[in-house]
Amino acid sequence: ILPGLFADLQRLGQNGQYDRAIKVVNKILQESPEDETAFTCKIVCFIQLGKFEEALAAIRKNAKLASCVVFEKAYCEYRLNRTNEALKTLDSSDKSDDRISELRGQVLYRLEKYDECFDIYRGLLKNTEDDFEEERETNLSAVMAAMQ
């Protein structure tokens, strides 16, 4: 039953049908409450639907799985303008992947910590290779303008 549900979940995610995806992911979590992958998908669905409070509530209710959604949790806090909380959440992460750095750059920009922010964007531009290089260059320009 689970592989079929995960296949549905994948299809709905690819199609951006996040409302329906949440229904499927809830079925998966009924069968397998500690599934980190499914839980992460659920939080991603909430974020894509703009339901940041709901995402945070789901994370609070499931402390066991909270460590697998640190980036997502911090992103919700950032969108809710709880910027200092977002920074604390990012600092609590034991791994420093590029997504964590990306969000840390945005958080530091909002907190007007431009020197640290500048260093992060320099690092990201050096280390990442994806579709968002131009956006990062733009962000770096904004940081440099703010540093003047």
Binding site: L2, P3, F6, A7, L9, Q10, G13, T37, T40, C41, V44, I47, Q48, F71, E72, Y75, Y78, D98, R99, E102, L103, Q106, Y109, D131, F132, E135, R136, T138, N139, S141, A142, A145, A146
Partner: peptide, 21 residues
């Protein structure tokens, strides 16, 4: 206000489900 992109939103995506299928 200078342009500043929310790139992090673009990085919010499902983890790989390959080994669940």
């Amino acid at each position: 206000k200078p342009l500043f992109f929310d790139v992090a939103l673009s990085l919010v995506e499902f983890p790989s489900l390959e080994d669940k299928l």
